[in-house]
Design a protein around this nucleic acid. Structure first.
Lengths: 120, 120
DNA sequence: AAAAACAATAGACCACGGTCCACGGTTTTG
DNA sequence: CAAAACCGTGGACCGTGGTCTATTGTTTTT
C-alpha cells in the first residue's frame, strides 16, 4: 500500500510515517513503478506501527526504539543485542515502578479529596 | 535553605529548580533578608522535588504535574480536582499497560536472541 | 487532455524541557 | 577591604518529536 492508505489505517500522519521511516523504525519496499519513487508498504508495517505507537506513548524515544529494532532484527552480534534488550527491559521496569509510585500518591490524594467532599 | 543547597541535596541543577518553581511545581518562601531576593526553601520542598523527579522520569509532563498539584492543594473545587485526579490515574494506568506490552515484546525478543545464540 | 488527488523532498516552524551565558547584585571568606 | 562564591534575571541555545508549507512530480478521474 502507499503512504496515504497506511496513514489512514494507522492513524498516523504521512509526515510522522516518513519521520519514522527516516529514523529506521519501519521500512518501505522499493516502489513498484519505475517512473515514480513512491513508498510502498507491506501489511506487516501496520503492525510495526502499532507497536511503535504503543511504545512511543509509553515514553520510549525514537532513538531507543531504533536501537531495539536493531537488536531485534540484527543477528550480527547476538550478545550485544542481548545486552541492549536486557538494559531496556530493566529501564522499562524501573519506569513502571515510578509510575506506580505516582499512582499510589494520586490515589491517596483522591481519597483525601473525597473525604473532604463528604465533610461538607 | 537556599537554592544551592537544595540543588546539592536534590541532585537537580539550579536552573531546573528555578524552572520548576516558575512552573508552579514548588514554592519558595519570601526571602529572609530585606536586601536580597534570594529564594528560601523549606525542607518539604526536597520531598516535593523527589516526587516531581520520579514523576518526570515516569514521563509526566510539567504541565500535567502542575495540574495535579493544583488538584491536590486547591480545595476550591473538589469535584473538579477529583475529575483531574481520576483522569490522570487512568492515563497512568494506560501507560503502564503500554509499557508492559513493550516489555512482553522485548522478553520474547530476548528469548529468541538467546535461542539463536545456543544454536551456534 | 485537464483537473483533482496523491506523493516526495527540503526547510521552516512549533512546543517542550532543559542547559548555558552574561550581567549585575549580595554574601561569605580570607 | 578584596576576592571568591553565591544568587537572580533574561535571553539565547539545544535536542526531540512532530507539523506545516512550498515546490515539483505522478497517478487517477472525468
Amino acid at each position: 500500500m502507499k503512504i496515504g492508505e497506511l496513514s489512514e489505517k494507522s492513524g498516523l500522519s504521512r509526515d510522522t510515517i516518513r519521520l519514522y521511516e527516516k529514523n529506521g523504525l519501519i521500512t518501505s519496499t522499493a516502489s513498484q513503478s519505475e517512473t515514480n519513487n513512491y513508498r510502498e508498504y507491506g501489511d506487516d508495517v501496520l503492525l510495526q506501527l502499532q507497536f511503535v505507537t504503543g511504545a512511543r506513548s509509553a515514553g520510549i524515544s525514537i532513538a531507543d526504539l531504533r536501537e531495539l529494532m536493531n537488536a531485534f532484527f540484527d543477528s550480527c552480534d547476538p550478545s550485544q543485542a542481548e545486552n541492549v534488550l536486557v538494559a531496556k527491559i530493566d529501564e522499562l521496569k524501573e519506569r513502571t515502578l515510578q509510575i506506580e509510585n505516582v499512582i499510589t500518591f494520586l490515589d491517596a490524594a483522591l481519597e483525601r479529596v473525597r473525604k473532604g467532599m463528604n465533610e461538607t
